[in-house]
Simulated assay, not measured.
Amino acid sequence: MDYLITEGYPSAAEKFAAEANIQPKADFSYIQERVQIRDSIYRGDLQAAIELINELNPELLDLDKRLHFSLLRLQLVELIRQSFSSPDPSLVGKAIEFAQKNLAPYAPLEAQFKIDLERAMALLIVPRDSWTSGVSSGPSGQSASQVQNDFGALAELVDPSLRRKVAKEVNEAILQSQDQRREANIRYLVRARSWAEQLAREKKVDLPDHLSLGLDGGDSAKDSQNGHNGDTEMTENGGEDNSINAYAEMARYAHVAS
Rank of each mutant, 00 (worst) to 15 (best):
G93K: 02
A18C: 03
K94L: 13
F84Q: 11
D219R: 11
Q176S: 10
G93I: 04
Q225V: 05
F113T: 09
S140W: 04
I37Q: 01
N185C: 06
Q225C: 07
H68F: 09
R73G: 12
S11T: 06
L199F: 06
D27C: 00
L46E: 09
Q23V: 14
Q178H: 05
D88A: 06
A122P: 10
I186K: 11
E240Y: 12
F98N: 01
S224C: 01
N226K: 05
T232E: 10
E197Y: 02
M1N: 03
E156L: 07
Q75R: 14
E169Y: 07
N226F: 14
S143F: 09
G141Y: 02
Q32I: 08
Y106G: 07
R187M: 10
T232H: 11
F28I: 10
G138W: 02
A95R: 00
D241S: 07
S243M: 05
E55C: 11
S133E: 11
L199Y: 07
L123C: 03
V256Q: 15
R43M: 10
D179N: 15
E51M: 14
Q178N: 08
H228S: 14
V135N: 01
A48E: 11
L52V: 03
K114S: 14
E59N: 13
I22P: 03
A107I: 01
R193G: 09
N226Q: 04
R191W: 03
K168Q: 15
A192D: 05
Q23D: 14
K203S: 13
T132K: 08
V166C: 10
W195V: 04
A246N: 15
S70D: 15
A20V: 12
Y253E: 09
A144T: 00
V92H: 06
A173L: 07
G214W: 05
L189Q: 15
K204G: 00
E14I: 07
R66C: 05
I22L: 13
S161M: 13
L67Q: 02
D45R: 12
S243A: 11
D209P: 08
N57T: 00
S212Y: 01
A104D: 09
Q148F: 02
A20L: 14
V170W: 08
L199A: 11
Q32V: 12
S212R: 04
V166D: 06
N237D: 08
K15M: 12
F151W: 09
N149D: 08
S140C: 00
S136V: 08
S11F: 01
N229R: 12
A196P: 00
A155N: 07
L74R: 05
R119Y: 08
A196L: 06
Q178S: 10
S90Q: 09
E59L: 08
E33T: 10
A153G: 09
E78N: 03
P127G: 09
V190E: 14
L117V: 04
Y9C: 04
V158D: 00
I115M: 08
Q112G: 03
E197H: 05
L154N: 05
I244N: 06
K204M: 05
K65A: 11
N245H: 06
Q47D: 15
Q75T: 02
S11K: 11
Q178D: 04
S137H: 01
Q146P: 00
H68P: 08
R182H: 09
R128N: 08
N102R: 10
S177V: 02
R73N: 14
N54F: 01
V256R: 15
D62S: 06
I41A: 05
R191K: 15
S194L: 15
R128T: 14
L157Y: 07
